[in-house]
Amino acid sequence: MAKMTMVQALNLAMQQEMEKDDRVIIMGEDVAVDGGVFRVTDKLITQFGEERVIDTPLAESGIIGTAIGMAAYGLHPILEIQFSGFSYYIFHQLEAHASRLRHRSRGRFHVPLVVRAPYGGGVRALEHHSESREIYYAHTPGVKMVIPSGPRNARALLISAIRDPDPVVFFEPKALYRAFREEVPEEEEVMEIGVPQKVREGSDVTIISYGAMMPVTLEAVEELQESDQVDAEVFDLLTISPFDDTAIAESVQKTGRAVIVHEAPRSFGPAAEIIARLIEKSFYYLEAPIERVTGYDIVYPLFARENAYMPDVERVKQAVRKTLAV
């Protein structure tokens, strides 16, 4: 096992899948010669050539529109959209066609493509480079929305996404691209899409988060254990949609308390759906109102104020304490 950053782990996933399966190709802006602006596709052109690692014109709708044709023809394209803030150009093609072609052709065609895009804040970036708008994609029937939180699960989930017969939007937490290293096994490892992972066993409160908020959540949990002797159970959602809520509902039935943490805006955000499901399945077990720690319903501020926007350890601790105080 080698210690890798998320960037290296994602690169490994693509490299291994491309080696095994000549249907897999990569396309996007600056993905070939430059290796992507974050270097996630670095050197793949050297191994696979420009037929399979394709530098495209600067046109996101063109990238996904052509990828839909390729996917229906039998290829498995991986698209890189340089920043999720520019993914709205793909939205029409994703909604009108990628998500519907299976249904519209009554199962004759399907669209196995992956849209990779870095998302999220905390990296002192320009406007449009810090948003967390996974809910647009999560709300689209026929699309899977996946967000990894570390090198190992990023690698395993990306392999699953590439092999998935349906379109997957794969948001990568750019704040974690090189934030830490993890052991990533050389041999193939996959993870089932749609299943949240329990990452910490506990009994006092259930905390659900994902993506770049996972390290924040886990840090808060460690501190609360230390200072308040709180024993929290923690879930990494990993798939925003569609996800199986069985395990988190059972957890809340055990703990009676829940806190959800995400950097996406609050209203109609992922937490709203998670809370609705917990109310449906675990209402009679709840000891306190469910808390959510989220971004706000505002334009993401430029970086002088972004720390005030982003959920942090302190806000997570406050929310947990609030729910435990009832």
């Binding site: 529109g65 052509t66 839909i68 044709g69 039998g74 066609h97």
Partner: peptide, 16 residues
């Protein structure tokens, strides 16, 4: 919206 699909199909034909 459908012209792009034909282009992708054509690109895939060329690749294959």
């Amino acid at each position: 919206s459908q012209m792009l699909h034909a282009v992708g199909i054509g690109m895939a034909m060329k690749y294959r």
